[in-house]
Amino acid sequence: MYLLNYIKTHKRILILIVSVLLLTITFETSQQLYYIKRFNLGGDATFFILLKNQAFRWFVWVVLSAVIFYYIQSTKIKKDLTFTHVLKYASLILGLVILNVVIISINQMLTYDDTFTISNLTNEYLPFFMFQKAPMYTLGYIAITIIMHLYFANEQLQIKVQDLSELKLTNARLYTQLKDRVDDRTSVLNIKIGNKRKIIPVNEVLWIEADDYCVKVHTVDKNCYTMRSSLKALLPKLDTNFLRVHRKAIANMTMIKELSMSNTPNLILNDNTEIPVSKSHLKTVKDFLSDH
Rank of each mutant, 00 (worst) to 15 (best):
I36L: 12
I268F: 03
P276S: 10
Y213N: 14
I250F: 03
N123D: 15
V97I: 13
L289F: 02
A153V: 06
E166H: 11
T138P: 07
T226I: 12
I275A: 02
L50S: 07
S260G: 04
T29N: 04
L259V: 01
M136C: 04
A251F: 03
M255I: 05
F59S: 08
Q54I: 05
I118P: 00
M255R: 05
S165E: 12
N5H: 13
I36S: 03
I147A: 14
K52D: 08
Q132P: 00
L22G: 11
M1R: 04
D180N: 12
Y2D: 11
V20R: 10
E124L: 14
Q54K: 08
I106H: 06
I256K: 01
N5Y: 11
Y141W: 05
H246V: 01
L267E: 01
V67N: 06
N5S: 14
M109E: 06
V285F: 02
V62H: 00
K11W: 11
N195T: 09
I68Y: 04
F116T: 09
I15S: 13
L157R: 14
Y70D: 05
L189R: 00
V182R: 09
V277N: 01
S278R: 04
A251T: 01
K216D: 07
L3Y: 14
M261K: 04
N107Q: 14
I144D: 00
F128I: 10
A134C: 09
M109G: 05
M227T: 03
R181W: 00
I193Y: 03
L189H: 01
K11V: 15
R12I: 15
I118Q: 07
F47H: 11
K11C: 08
S30P: 00
A153R: 08
Y141L: 09
A90M: 11
L99H: 06
F83L: 14
T111H: 12
H149A: 01
I72S: 03
Q73H: 15
Q132I: 07
N266T: 13
T138I: 07
